[in-house]
């Protein structure tokens, strides 16, 4: 079986986000980025599913972080890494178009990606890609099992409710959580991969896909909008006393 895992580089929300000068984007200068945490779960799920002779292929768009993401994926156990050149990472529509071209160049049984990312304003990649490729898709998946040419997946609803579906392969899954916490790759191992493994490249032929909408404004919600900010323990204790819980 061949698994594809789609990876995306996103701002680390631990950082303070600022609006850029145009007022329509996040100021990326000095901003720290990281692998989309749900993509990390998608990768883990693929690695857990892959058995002897199976192949896990990690794909991402060229740019900052691409080499790090792909080499880390290989260090964790992925078989190959493919960097897409000339694609569009501006929005989900562009990403889906770019990935569909690269995935169409080979055959894959299961395509996994994170259920969402912090900046997918025009929709979630998994189902958009699936629609573009004419494949079935289930999102918000937290368990996957393979049985012949089908996958059994658990999709999470609200209130802790879970629905089980059987899906014909090939299929696309939007992964919410892998069945185990994502593994860790030692920095030394990642560095070793960087020095010894050649990443593959796939040239995307100009994507005309567009989200069909434009960002006209961006603003931080007023900080501390509703909260009365307390300084010092005394104030906190006073509030707790007032609520009668102490």
């Amino acid at each position: 079986m061949r698994f594809a895992v789609l990876l995306k580089w996103v701002p680390d929300l631990v950082e303070d986000l600022e609006v850029d000068d145009e007022g329509t984007g996040v100021d990326t200068e000095d901003l720290k980025f990281k692998l989309n945490e749900f993509d990390d779960h998608a990768l883990e799920q693929a690695l857990l599913l892959a058995g002897e002779g199976d192949e896990v292929v990690a794909l991402t768009l060229e740019g900052d972080g691409a080499e790090k993401m792909l080499c880390t994926a290989i260090a964790k156990g992925a078989s190959r890494g493919i960097r897409l050149t000339g694609g569009s990472s501006l929005d989900t529509a562009g990403l889906a178009d770019s990935f569909s071209q690269a995935l169409g160049a080979d055959t894959y049984d299961l395509i996994l990606t994170g259920v969402q990312s912090v900046d997918d304003r025009d929709g979630q990649l998994g189902p958009v890609l699936a629609a573009r490729m004419g494949l079935p898709c289930v999102s918000v998946v937290s368990e996957v099992g393979l049985e012949g040419s089908t996958a059994m997946v658990a999709k999470e609803y609200s209130g802790g409710m879970v629905a089980e579906f059987e899906v014909d392969l090939p299929a696309v899954l939007g992964i919410q959580a892998a069945s185990e916490a994502p593994r860790y790759a030692p920095v030394s191992r990642v560095r070793q991969v960087q020095q010894t493994v050649d990443l593959e490249e796939f040239a995307v032929s100009g994507t005309g896909a567009s989200s069909g909408s434009s960002i006209t404004g961006m603003a931080q919600p007023e900080s501390g909008g509703g909260a009365k900010m307390l300084t010092g323990l005394d104030e906190l204790v006073e509030v707790l006393n007032g609520l009668g819980v102490t």
Binding site: S213, I215, M218, A219
Partner: peptide
């Protein structure tokens, strides 16, 4: 839209149908 984990409010203008 509430993006970036709720850290940014992003305004989009979109023509119908949408």
């Amino acid at each position: 839209s509430s993006l970036y984990g709720g850290k940014m409010g992003v305004t989009s203008t979109v023509p119908g149908p949408a």
